[in-house]
Design a protein around this nucleic acid. Structure first.
Lengths: 117, 117
DNA sequence: CGGTATCCTAGGAGATACTG
DNA sequence: CAGTATCTCCTAGGATACCG
């Protein structure tokens, strides 16, 4: 492994990036968008349980990070579509196997919770 | 994609699992351990910036999840080694590419932060 | 060395109400 | 529809001190 999986310092950019993409909602949004461009309201449904505030915040962060792009149309009623940038798509490709794994192993993991009898 | 990357409900096990493994420190610990068994103090150095409290807490969660196993030797001075279970190893294999990507793209992402001039 | 126990606070996160 | 503003609550997480 080239970056030597070991220590990387506390304040370095990779830490920040890691925080953004492994944020509670970040993963879910990225994942939802990996299926294609979607509107605000659709994202809200997909990231089940997210509040408007968190959706807005997460989308902004991801946009600033250049992972998501926002396309607004000034029509009535307003319509805004979000999609992955190419970089975002690259990332989502890495995220999908992870979530798939989590999904497949979730029941085992949670049920297998043996209390230290 | 079999699980249909879309909605998965708010309280379901996969969400919990996702939270555990995408916790701020979870990733770092899992990653450090992917290089092999390590002692408490070594993990502390590797997960640069982690507090004792968070290290203990994270390790417990990961242990409960069956991802990490703990081997204590009752000697003086005490020695405790942590390592990945086979399931943990499976997971870390998915995490490594993700972190590698984050590491490689971090500077671009953080620097490219164009203020909406 | 490998932890617990305790205290404390910044900000993550939800609820509600309002706007272009 | 697609947000912003505000208020509040809660807990993740750090600092410190102590223990087997």
């Amino acid at each position: 492994m080239s970056f030597s999986t070991g220590v990387f310092p506390a304040g370095c950019p990779s830490r920040t990036v890691l925080d953004h993409i492994s944020s509670k909602w970040g993963v879910l949004i990225l994942l939802a968008l990996s299926e294609g461009e979607q509107r605000w309201s659709e994202l809200r449904r997909r990231a089940d349980g997210i509040s408007e505030k968190m959706l807005a915040q997460t989308l902004k962060t991801l946009e600033r990070d250049g992972l998501v792009s926002r396309r607004a149309q000034t029509v009535i009623p307003p319509r805004v579509d979000y999609s992955l940038t190419s970089r975002g798509y690259e990332l989502s490709a890495l995220l999908v196997p992870l979530v798939t794994w989590a999904f497949q192993n979730a029941d085992d993991i949670i049920n297998g919770q043996r209390d230290p009898a």
